[in-house]
């Protein structure tokens, strides 16, 4: 049995008096695709800010590949790749430069970064675009580039915060398929935050977050065997999801 790639225990967070997360606990195992499902305002982005150490929680514990994020942040951050909801590319730089910049932040030499950039771009069907400026890419390819960048340092955990927002159906499907393949083929643990139920495959783990609390967790097809996940979610939260 493997150790969890991500283990969150009793995590709480407040913005002043407003409670954003309340005693959240869950784990994501290597090779598992975990969909963090919740409507806008559920606390997904706050949870991501805590998981990536942009904020620090006063209560609770986060461990990445056994490394405590609070006491050993560098080791924990080195194990994770992140795709934020907002785009974080440098649009003035080329695709290859964006990847090289990120690789260097993770200690890759120029040669090593170039090799890995070639490999990840190949995998995401973007090899021919390496010299293009990020500004010239469409929304779907920008997202693919962000995923490629998050894979440069070969993380064991991939965090994606609503990565398909604003994309057309085809791009959404392609990106969802790519990330599922990463979990299945490479054993990368994936935490995928979304409010779009159709991005969750039946065999995925679904984690339903509502008003800062985890309401339910389990295999998507077991949580909602009959009416589908969207109906189940509505039933639980009394809020619709698409």
């Amino acid at each position: 049995m493997h150790d969890p790639a991500l283990e969150v225990t009793d995590l709480s967070f407040r913005y002043g008096k407003k409670e954003a997360l309340r005693s959240v606990s869950f784990r994501v195992m290597p090779g598992e695709f975990c969909a963090l499902l919740g409507p806008n305002g559920a606390g997904k982005s706050t949870l991501f800010a805590l998981l990536t150490r942009l904020f620090v929680a006063r209560q609770g514990r986060i461990a990445v590949m056994g490394q405590d994020l609070q006491t050993n942040p560098r080791a924990a951050l080195a194990c994770m790749g992140v795709v934020f909801q907002q785009m974080t590319l440098d649009l003035d730089l080329s695709v290859a430069r964006n990847l090289a910049y990120f690789g260097a932040l993770h200690g890759l030499s120029r040669r090593e970064a170039a090799l890995r950039a070639g490999a990840v771009l190949e995998r995401l069907d973007m090899a021919e675009r390496a010299r293009e400026k990020a500004r010239n890419l469409n929304g779907g390819h920008r997202r693919r580039l962000e995923i490629a960048r998050a894979l440069m340092h070969r993380p064991r955990l991939l965090l994606l915060d609503e990565p398909t927002v604003g994309l057309d159906t085809r791009s959404r499907a392609a990106i969802t398929a790519h990330v599922h393949a990463l979990a299945r083929d490479d054993g990368i643990a994936v935490l995928w935050a979304t409010h779009l139920v159709d991005e969750v495959a039946p065999e995925d783990t679904a984690l339903i977050l509502h008003q800062g609390e985890i309401l339910q967790t389990g295999r998507a097809d077991q949580l909602a065997p009959k009416g589908g996940l969207a109906a189940h979610f509505m039933h639980l939260t009394e809020e619709p999801v698409t």
């Binding site: 942009l54 560098r74 951050l77 992140v82 934020f84 974080t88 440098d90 990120f102 932040l105």
Partner: peptide, 12 residues
């Protein structure tokens, strides 16, 4: 815009 987040999540 978000790109500062990327820098701040580097393991340094």
């Amino acid at each position: 815009m978000g790109s500062m987040r990327l820098l701040l999540t580097a393991p340094l």
